[in-house]
Amino acid sequence: MAHTVLVCDDAIFMRTMISDILVQAGFEVVGEAETGVQAVQKYRELSPDLVTMDIVMPDMGGIEAVREICRVDPDAKILMCSAMGQQALVVEAIQAGAKDFVVKPFQPSRVLEAVQRVLG
């Protein structure tokens, strides 16, 4: 059975791109979120195998969302999607419970490597 994924990013462009990469690799994107609040809410609803999380989102950022999700489910598998130069935020996200990260601009191979590592 294909792994389920929740894609969180405030830009449709990024959501689409990540979804495409994952779907082509055989994953099932079960939901999308545009804000941190939505991400937490949808995680509860969908219990996906994997979450991709943008760091900067309106209405509760990605790090805050990671914290919330991990509070609910300490085993949540969250992959951070970050821009260059956000290392401090990525570190904070890892401390908050994120399992791995990819840096934009995305290369499909690197995204999939990271996903594999997270799903272990």
Binding site: Q87, V90, K99, F101
Partner: peptide
């Protein structure tokens, strides 16, 4: 990219 964050993951 972000060797520091990667190092932290390795430590984890």
């Amino acid at each position: 990219p972000m060797r520091g964050a990667r190092a932290l993951l390795a430590l984890r």
